[in-house]
């Protein structure tokens, strides 16, 4: 067999072998668990330290602007910021720019409030603490005290209580979200008279304290769609609301201009960005450990090395076989 034939055979390899290769390099590292360190960058640190300075008097938005397709990247970002906010007792308004994204918001809540999640928060639904609300006990500290005095006990492993309407409001989806953002610069309640659970938002203490986006301190858009631009265009440029980006890796490079121009305070790019935030949370004792994004980074390393090897091998075969001088190769499967 001539040398050229070997290169040609190599280039025409059945692509299913490559598929098998990528499957193997994406599975094996999970069992070896290298735990390679993830070094944080200023892009993510800026969001973290901005968030860390916020407290119970502030409020943030976490906008679920991604579909199930990109949840592997976007979900850890949103979850990390939610946990950070709950730890600092910062009220979180949760929105979604598309119906499927609404489902992602509910999925994030299920994850953060699920007792099987390491470092979960124990949720108190809006109706369950009605009595205390009516007695005007709404400040977080006294609310927790009064709630526990009623005989409620924090489950083992839970990091704290989160009260619906005090610590979070699941607002969800509304159509034409760019105009919804604009509308919320005037009134949040007009855009969301009820939340995703059917509760009246007007009765929520956090909404009574933060009536419009002008009284909110940051919006994180965890985005797999162009909705992140809406937050910059319609909230940042209209009223100066600080925006943080959590973007899929595919989108991340496109928005560096916003970052450099100071239109966003920081950006988490892809799984790596989420892993950095998880590292910062764990290092600062906000969560007991890192989570799924960090665990995935070992696999990410192995897969990148594999793909770089594929590029090198592809080029080697292409040039060594002299195909750069020839007409087209026969296509492989």
């Amino acid at each position: 067999m001539s040398a050229v034939n070997i290169w040609e055979k190599m280039l025409n390899i059945d692509r299913r072998w490559i598929f098998l290769g990528i499957a193997v390099v994406s599975i094996v590292p999970f069992f070896i668990n290298f735990g390679m360190p993830v070094v944080t960058t200023t892009e993510v640190e800026d969001i973290f330290y901005y968030m860390d300075d916020l407290g119970p008097d502030n409020a943030i938005f976490v906008s679920f602007d991604f579909a199930p397709g990109t949840q592997a990247e976007n979900m850890p970002m949103a979850v990390a910021v939610m946990r950070h906010a709950f730890h600092n007792n910062v009220p979180v308004f949760m929105t979604a720019n598309w119906p499927l994204h609404h489902g992602m918001m509910l999925a994030a809540m299920e994850y953060v409030f699920n007792p099987s999640t390491v470092g979960f928060y124990q949720e108190v639904p809006f109706d369950d603490w009605r009595e205390l609300r009516e007695a005007d006990v709404t400040a977080k500290g006294e609310l927790v005290e009064a709630w526990e005095n009623q005989g409620n006990q924090l489950s083992e492993g839970a990091l704290g209580w989160v009260f619906e309407g005090r610590d979070y409001a699941a607002m969800g989806y509304a159509p034409v979200f760019n105009l919804v953002i604009l509308g919320m610069t005037v009134s949040i309640e007009t855009q969301y008279p009820v939340d995703a659970h059917g509760n009246s938002t007007g009765e929520m203490p956090m909404l009574q304290e933060h009536k419009s986006l002008r009284e909110v301190d940051m919006a994180l858009t965890s985005s797999g769609s162009g909705a992140c631009v809406w937050w910059v265009t319609y909230a940042r440029e209209k009223i100066g609301l600080p925006i943080a980006f959590g973007l899929t890796a595919v989108m991340a490079t496109d928005y560096y201009p916003y970052l450099q121009a100071g239109q966003v305070i920081g950006q988490m790019g892809g799984l790596r960005g989420a892993a950095e935030y998880e590292v910062l949370l764990a290092e600062n004792g906000i969560t007991p450990s890192t989570d799924k994004a960090f665990t995935g980074m070992d696999v990410q390393s192995a897969a990148h090395i594999f793909i770089i090897l594929l590029i090198i091998m592809g080029n080697l075969a292409f040039f060594a076989g002299g195909f750069h001088k020839k007409t087209l190769l026969k296509g492989g499967r």
Binding site: F30, T70, A72, A249, H304
Partner: peptide
């Protein structure tokens, strides 16, 4: 740079599914 990030993004999505399955 965009291509590099695209590779990263696609692999991340696969990682998500493997975490789900395994």
């Amino acid at each position: 740079a965009t291509f590099g990030f695209t590779v990263m993004g696609r692999i991340s999505l696969l990682i998500g599914r493997i975490q789900y399955l395994l």
